[in-house]
Design a binder for these strands. Structure first.
Lengths: 345, 345
DNA sequence: CTGAAAGCGCTAACAC
DNA sequence: GTGTTAGCGCTTTCAG
């Protein structure tokens, strides 16, 4: 009932109203609105006053129609297990991008790619609803997005597997390097039997991290340690740790491809009475709250994921503005040492 | 260089093109597009064919201008420490809302309210850029949003402190109840000296949770246990735990107002050699990854935060559609028992 | 049932 | 410099 009565809300003032109040034409009003240089000081003053008097706010939809732009970009996220936040990675990328957008005239639209109707997302993107799109990993469909990039500016958060060509850009960290940093630290602390709980090899990040670990051991002249793959969850990490231990091969260092998995692994080590870092030093890739939620806290390679989100957004905006951007941008990473490795050496 | 050449991209087909191909007028084409009942089967067929032939996708901007709607709603988030994801609460609400939106024709725009230019957000919201707004806690400015609700549909995630009236709705959990559930469980397990690490009393959630704990103890005839306030972070929880222990009063049960703080507290207990749940049983409010990252995992009251996000979104959409909605909606919560209390009793 | 015409609010040539 | 005139692409009376 109350709802009925207060819904009507007064219609917002239009540019025409402003122009009339300022006694100029809509064109002139529009000009001052857009900061055109060729306008009298007087006109500017009059229009400005009218604007604040009417409390006028330009209608973006109309403006966008006239300009054929939308002033907004989309962040496309796979619905996957429908729980994209189980992984702090997404949260961080989104945060980074959203925060960056706040300082621009653009807006960020969050698009969850529904598993059952992926075409809906495609149609939305191709329907001129956004000026560009940020694509977060979804290997099974990246060929589609590569194709999309021929019609709409697109920036990927990971290199698409598809080998098709397209005018897209990629912003990501160097995962090989991340694993190298973690492994080298362990070696520097005197570890000689370094195992890894890897991410699925179906993901390029998984392959790269495994490769960084392997190559570092090789160039240090150490024997390749045992490898077990985890499913990215703490439980998966715990299971991988069990397998690693059950094999019976001695281990004095562990690289975990993600902090979530490391957390699970830490639980297993604790249960078995294996001390960290005294018996096994552990270093993990990706620094997030999982890294500091264990005892002892985990040495981690910080992937600067929020920065990645911001850079993805900025790269896309530059493309939208017509600038020429590099095809690949690598986000810097850094090793953060904590107790899980510190006591050794 | 390549950028220059492939930018042009073909112009997308318009409704007019579809109409001509189908040999009907734009009006008719528009009608079939919008599922108007008064159109010949033939016309529908022709237009439908033309649409798929041209791969036509309606331009939402134009459609919105004509309808005076935007088909999108905003989620307003305080920039705060610029790290809204430090708290999984935001991530969960956003996820819930985004997922829900995916099944509608609406779009979700993420709006970070910049600390230095809060007016920018206001202008955006009042500029007709969205059909409604979801407001996540920002006490210092909620009077503004209450005022905004008189011009734009608004749904709050927490009851605004401002006592001004406005046609807004609120969707939240009952925080008193949450604390009652946690405290009762502890009592049921035989605890008689129940302390609480509370959330800041400046937040209504903090006050409500403290009240739930206090009243439950009272009605059980137990003496009021010690209270220490934490700042919501794990470190704050740890500090509060230290203070609690240093007071020297015996404690056999602990309620933590948030899982993050509980995590910090668990570390202190472990360091002091106090066993959980044997010496002190702990129950926390808000079930998230912090709840399961401890050893033992924490009994928690699940606040269904993602459901809250979804309900907020749905409530807003209903208002937008002109439906009359309840002013307050309470999200159901449930207790999830884990090892941190289980072994007792 | 369908087409013609007007208009959503703003921008952008093109004259004056 | 500033006003006039057309649209941007779609929806929607209003006749027919």
């Amino acid at each position: 009932m109350t709802q009925e009565t207060d819904a009507p809300a007064v219609v917002p003032p239009t540019l025409l109203a402003v122009a009339q109040l300022a006694k100029v034409s809509r064109s002139t009003a529009s000009r001052v609105l857009n900061g055109s240089p060729q306008v009298t000081e007087e006109a500017i003053a009059a229009v400005t006053r009218a604007i604040s008097e009417l409390n006028y706010v330009p209608n973006r939809t109309a403006r966008n129609l006239a300009n054929r732009t939308t002033q907004s970009i989309a962040m496309v996220i796979p619905q996957q297990t429908s729980k994209f936040f189980a992984d702090p990675y997404f949260a961080a990328v989104i945060q980074g991008a959203a925060l960056h957008m706040a300082s621009t005239e653009y807006t960020l639209t969050l698009l969850i790619e529904s598993d059952d109707d992926p075409q809906k997302t495609r149609r939305f993107l191709e329907g001129g609803n956004v000026d560009g799109a940020l694509i977060l990993s979804h290997y099974t469909r990246d060929a589609d997005y590569v194709a999309l990039s021929r019609n709409l500016p697109v920036v990927f958060g990971v290199q698409p597997l598809s080998t098709d060509e397209g005018p897209y850009s990629v912003v990501d960290v160097n995962n090989v390097e991340a694993a190298v940093l973690a492994t080298q630290l362990l070696i520097g602390h005197g570890c000689t039997q370094i195992a890894i709980i890897g991410a699925p090899l179906g993901m390029s990040a998984g392959r790269d991290r495994a490769e960084g670990w392997r190559s570092t051991l090789a160039s240090a002249g150490l024997a390749e340690g045992p490898f077990e793959e985890g499913d990215l969850t703490p439980a998966g990490g715990a299971a991988a740790m069990e397998r690693l231990l059950d094999v019976g091969r001695p281990i004095d260092g562990l690289v975990a491809a993600t902090a979530q998995m490391a957390q699970g692994a830490m639980g297993v080590l604790k249960d078995r009475g294996i001390a960290v870092p005294e018996d096994i030093a552990v270093a993990t890739i990706d620094n997030n709250f999982f890294s500091t939620s264990t005892h002892p806290p985990l040495t981690s390679v910080d992937l600067n994921t929020d920065l990645k989100g911001a850079v993805m957004a900025e790269t896309l905006l530059r493309i939208v503005r017509g600038e020429i951007v590099e095809k690949f941008t690598t986000i810097p990473i850094e090793l953060i040492e904590r107790e899980s490795t510190r006591a050794r050496s």
